[in-house]
Simulated assay, not measured.
Amino acid sequence: MARATAGFWILTILAACNAAGPLDGLEPGERGRVVRVVDGDTIVLDTGQSVRLVGIEAPSGGYKEREPQFYHTESKRMMEDMVLGREVQLHYGGLTRDRYDRALAHAQTVDALGPKLWLNAEMVKRGGARVRVYPDTAAANAPLLEFERDARRQETGLWRAMQYRIPYARDLPDPFEGFQLVRGHVVDMQGADGYGAVCDLSLEDSPLKLHIQTAAASLCQEAPGHMVLARGYVRGNEMEISHALNFEFVETPTH
């Protein structure tokens, strides 16, 4: 009996060790050593390849007259401390390049200079970036949402700052432009008037319209009547919901 029990636990441990990780189903890409960190979601390899980490949105730096976003320096330093000088393996789950020829990838450290880190996830866990999902690179993004919820609850990193508190849609400044998380009560669904949208959702006491795209079409029927958390780029009182992972149903106020 003791031998049988021991054998059972050995098999259980081996099965756990061999369990598929979130990146295992992705296409392996290039390897390279990180020689530069642009910001909290963009790195440069010794091959010359720039890499935009998918599934996350870190505070951006300044450009021309545009000021750096709040927490940019801290987010960039967070990435530098994790990965500068280390070798990483890229993993692809869809579109592999953007219009700037940056690799669109998940990245994982693979050398002996430190612990094995999934950089996209670590930036979310440490509060250096928010989750942002695009349909053409959405593979393996789902676990990032739970990491973000934990970071929000614990007020880790940027979540300690008032600038990153999640407002009700009715409290957004007017005008407002930028990537944003908002909460609100969906009170109505109309036919789409946004480019590529399948429907528009209205939020209580707010002019903000949520343009629901094809990849999130089920929300047109599911969302009315619910309190939700939506994330996307806001421009002209419109937010495009390009993927269902950018939309959460919530029962209580979100931190």
Rank of each mutant, 00 (worst) to 15 (best):
L84M: 13
E248A: 06
A169N: 08
F249G: 08
N141E: 09
L210G: 03
A138Q: 12
W9R: 10
G25E: 13
D111M: 10
G225M: 06
L53H: 05
I10D: 13
P173G: 05
R52G: 02
A4F: 07
I212A: 06
Q89S: 02
A20R: 15
A161R: 11
A129W: 00
F176W: 10
A20L: 14
L203K: 00
W118R: 04
V44Q: 10
I13V: 14
V186T: 09
M162N: 15
E155A: 15
Q213L: 09
A129Y: 09
E65L: 11
K209H: 12
Y100I: 00
L181N: 11
R3F: 06
L201V: 10
L210S: 01
R31I: 02
A192L: 11
K76I: 01
E222M: 10
R235W: 11
E67L: 14
E248Q: 13
D24I: 07
Y164E: 13
T254M: 06
W9Y: 15
R99I: 10
R31L: 03
A215P: 02
L113V: 05
P135D: 14
G32F: 02
T252G: 03
V34T: 04
T254W: 09
Q163G: 09
F179T: 11
A138W: 06
Q154E: 15
Q190A: 12
G7T: 05
H226V: 03
I212L: 05
H226L: 10
D101M: 04
K76N: 03
G93T: 07
S242H: 01
L26D: 02
P28T: 12
A161Y: 06
K209C: 00
E74C: 03
A169D: 07
N246S: 00
G32P: 00
G40I: 00
M162T: 14
G48T: 12
E57N: 08
T96Y: 06
Y164G: 07
P59Q: 13
A244I: 04
K64Q: 11
V51E: 01
F147V: 08
T109H: 08
A138V: 07
A58T: 00
L53W: 03
E27T: 14
I212R: 01
P68M: 13
L23C: 13
P167K: 10
L84R: 13
D46F: 10
G62T: 13
H211T: 03
V182K: 01
E177Q: 15
F176M: 11
L210I: 10
P22V: 14
G127H: 00
S60H: 02
C220M: 09
L90W: 05
P22I: 07
H243Y: 01
H211K: 12
R99V: 09
L219R: 08
R170C: 05
P207Q: 08
G114V: 02
R231N: 05
Y100C: 01
V37R: 02
G114A: 03
I13T: 13
S50E: 14
